[in-house]
Simulated assay, not measured.
Amino acid sequence: MNQSPLYLQIKTYIIKQIEQGYWPIGHRISTELELTEQFGVSRMTVNKALRDLVSEGRLVRRPRLGTFVSAPDDKAESPLLNIRNIADEVSQRGKTYSSKVIKQASILADDMVATQLGVMLNSSVYCSEIIHFEDKTPIQLEIRWVNANYVPQYIEQDFSDITPNQYLSNSCPLSAIEHTVEAIVASDSVRAALRLGINEPCLLLNRRTWSGDKLISTALLYHPGTRYKLSSKVMF
């Protein structure tokens, strides 16, 4: 039996509804009366749980309209018009960065990789898959393919110690980037890696990078839409 205070049980229920995607950002949650009946508690108890969640930024109350799931103010953020090392971004936000290397191998380029990386079909290329964390919460799944002819030592790097971005920036100074962004329905593997809720949105950033006239790498960067945002600033 759950021995925690009733208002905490209600808070936990609401948070799970949000994190598992049943109550997305902007969703009007159950009313105080509905929660009172659902949990068999006093309205004061429900009100305490809701007030706590409002003060924590999880919910927002709108007079005469109801209580809604709010967008978090502390989303991780990356620039869209240039490239920054994700480990530095996390540190600059005062958070702790860590990563988990899922795959690091030499593979044969299929149609998609060959086209994106500008190599012949079945050419030998390097592939790495890494989950990047902020305070132990996954904020990016990086799947990257690298031209083995231009960066032959890529496969030998310890990417638990240095990020691919750091290594490539040092080895092949950046001269051009190409970015496209789209909202997608995440596959089961991406959802599991990023701990996405059932209906939680996913942002996919497609990136290609050049050094001089050489196309060095192509990457798919997946982000949890409720915990991450991309920004840009253009000066005129």
Rank of each mutant, 00 (worst) to 15 (best):
L35M: 12
G197C: 00
R84Y: 13
R51S: 08
E19I: 05
R84N: 09
S232G: 08
E156Y: 14
K214G: 03
E56D: 12
Q166Y: 07
P63D: 10
N82Y: 14
V54E: 01
Y150S: 09
V46A: 09
P201H: 08
K229F: 04
S106H: 02
F133D: 10
I139M: 11
H179F: 08
E56I: 10
K229D: 11
S123V: 06
M112R: 14
N199I: 04
Q9S: 04
R64E: 03
E182Q: 14
V125M: 04
D188K: 15
D188W: 10
G40P: 00
T137C: 11
Q3V: 10
V90F: 01
G40L: 03
L174W: 14
V190P: 13
K136I: 10
R227S: 04
R207M: 04
I86L: 06
T12P: 04
M120K: 12
G26K: 00
L50T: 01
L6W: 05
K136V: 04
M1F: 11
M120Q: 05
Y13L: 03
Y126I: 00
H223A: 04
A49S: 04
I216G: 01
V119Q: 01
K136N: 15
V146N: 01
S55C: 14
D158T: 03
P72C: 07
V54Q: 00
T115V: 05
N199W: 07
L204R: 08
M120E: 15
N199D: 02
R62C: 02
T36V: 08
G57W: 01
E32T: 13
Y7W: 07
S160N: 15
N165Y: 08
Y13H: 15
V190D: 02
F68Q: 00
I143K: 12
F68C: 00
T226R: 08
I155K: 08
Q116P: 02
V41Q: 01
C127R: 05
N122M: 12
C202M: 08
R61A: 15
R84A: 12
N85Y: 09
M120G: 11
S211P: 01
P152D: 03
D161N: 15
A114M: 02
N47H: 13
K95Y: 13
M120P: 07
V101M: 05
D88V: 11
Y222P: 06
I131Q: 13
L6A: 13
L33E: 15
P152I: 05
